[in-house]
Amino acid sequence: MNALRRVAVIVGYEWRRALAKKWFFALVILAFAIQVLIFVVFNYLFTNPLPDLPPEFQVALEQMKPYMWIVEVLTPQGFFMSLIVIMIAGGSMSEEYEQGTSDILLSKPITKLEYMTGKYLGGLSLLSFVAAMTTILGVILAIAFFSPQESLQFIPHIYLAIVYSNLVFLSLAFMFSEVLRRTTLSYFSAIGVYISSMVITGVLSAVHSFTGEQLYLDVSKGLPDWGASNFPSFVMGKLLNVPNNPFISPTQGDSNLLLAGALIAVYTAIFIVVATIRLVRSDVTKKTA
């Protein structure tokens, strides 16, 4: 059996492992529910315009209507997708150590690198599947209730942008799972980094708004959350080119799009390299649970 087949066997195993968890379904259902909720809110706003809403917002909202599929697709991207990927990857390696099943798996004819690749690709394929589901649901809801929808040819672009941007927290949680080899600690660490990064980015952006000092904004861009959160919006902003609309983030130039893309790649690479070094150089930890 060649290396690819061994990796594929572990990918299949990883799916079984994740799908056996109730929280996985709960989070996915919650993400779907949020999408439906957003639809309800926007549908209400379109049918019952708020009297106090400034006219420019009213215009922007109307302008947004043909692109509601993007709002629907991007809604779970922020918090829920990050949380789902952290939950997928945060226990991927550590649970096997804690339960002692890593001994059983790694005493089979497979290299550590093949095992890790299978585990990582298993998580990535699950992320891709969940992203595909939320994308399809978002598009269906938008087409059903806000027709006609425009620029649907960009569905694959937004889907790929969502998957790509989530690599940061998938890899971060995966790294913690391998380095710490404790599932709860790994979840808390990854969520901690995610929330801290989000809060710090927000604070630095606010300080930048008050002071006009560029440095704060530049520093905030270096945090893991910035690229991961904004990349899909930047991609769509560039593709759609709807100027001055607050509901679709403007790209603020190609440099931001490129920077976000590059930061995702750099963070992902760093996290994977750290996890690989830890796995290859150290012993397989004995059962702890």
């Binding site: 059996m1 066997v9 195993y13 079984r16 492992r17 099943t101 004819p109």
Partner: peptide, 24 residues
């Protein structure tokens, strides 16, 4: 292994099948 903890989400047949796949 000593006092093994096996993957509880599998049935016995499924786990044997998975291990069989590992050996090609």
């Amino acid at each position: 292994p000593e006092l093994p903890t096996l993957q509880t989400f599998f049935t016995g047949e499924q786990l044997l099948d998975f291990m069989g796949k590992m050996f090609g």
